[in-house]
Design a protein around this nucleic acid. Structure first.
Lengths: 159, 159
DNA sequence: TTTTCTGCAAACGATTTGCATACAC
DNA sequence: GTGTATGCAAATCGTTTGCAGAAAA
């Protein structure tokens, strides 16, 4: 069970760095808390917030998303679509070992947990002397629903 | 031994798609052929070519790098530095299984060959029904030289 | 009251596009 | 000749920055 961050965590971590708690920061975190499993871009976050509130500057979104990432409440992910995306971090350090499965038919993003990479990283160190501190892994392909709907490797020519 | 593409391959593949062979296309491919193992951005390619020739439009570089990638002579890679990079493809389909090791101290990019991911991809299919067609894997950390020069996880605070 | 924040608009860097000219076929 | 490619400049897209006013501590 992945325990999730709350607004209290936000307040604590802001104080620890002499940053101020603002409604904007709270609302941005709230957007992610209310949407577990989603991978939102800055633009999407602003879209959600501007629907509910009058003016919500893009710069504020960018600045605070970055801040929340620094505070390790969010995690930045690059799905290769040209814009940065973010998801709520979990309190478990194992969240590091979840990889993204990106469906090239419908765009849906799912996740896969695994620690196979630990072995790979050890063997990288042994063979190359390269000490891995972080990794980024993305798998592209067809999700179950799209495969059942006729997409997939065997139908790949059905462009 | 990875066999490398040549200008003849370029000509053949251009013809097959009724594209024309131009000096620019040839020169761009040549840049990559002469620099095996390098991961060049569009800007770097233009820089190299503009040193040797008078005018070489950025748009031409972008359009042709993309074309060469479509023709599978080049491979696009995203090292997370905000610009697309490219490397010469090899004729072996196994080139797919080389991963990039990115040193966060000196920026050097090295490579690591491995087929451990095949097992992972199989287990993704079994557990999620997701059919992987491609993957992107990057490892960040410290290369041997930088570790020996005092960088590395144990000295990470030496920012 | 002091410092940090916000929102706007302008700046930015990578990439794309429109268009007239130049070149490969 | 005909159609594709080139080079330039302007446009675009995501993101960052400068700055004056607003709000948290």
């Amino acid at each position: 069970m992945a325990r999730i961050f709350t607004v209290d965590d936000l307040r604590d971590r802001l104080q620890a760095r002499q940053h101020k708690m603002t409604p904007q920061r709270q609302m941005i975190l709230q957007v992610f808390i209310e949407r577990p499993g989603e991978h939102l871009s800055a633009e999407e976050v602003q879209g959600i917030l501007r629907d509910n509130f009058d003016s919500f500057g893009m710069a504020t979104v960018y600045r605070n998303i970055e801040l929340l990432t620094d505070l390790e409440l969010l995690q930045k992910i690059d799905l290769g679509d040209g814009k940065a995306r973010y998801e709520l971090n979990t309190k478990e350090p194992t969240s590091h070992n979840h990889h993204h499965l990106i469906c090239i038919a419908c765009g849906k993003i799912s996740e896969f947990n695994d620690d196979l990479l630990d072995g790979l990283e050890r063997s990288i160190f042994e063979k190359c002397g390269f000490e891995v501190t972080d990794h980024q892994v993305k798998f592209f392909g067809y999700c179950q629903e799209c495969r059942e709907a006729g997409y997939g490797a065997e139908n790949d020519d059905a462009d």
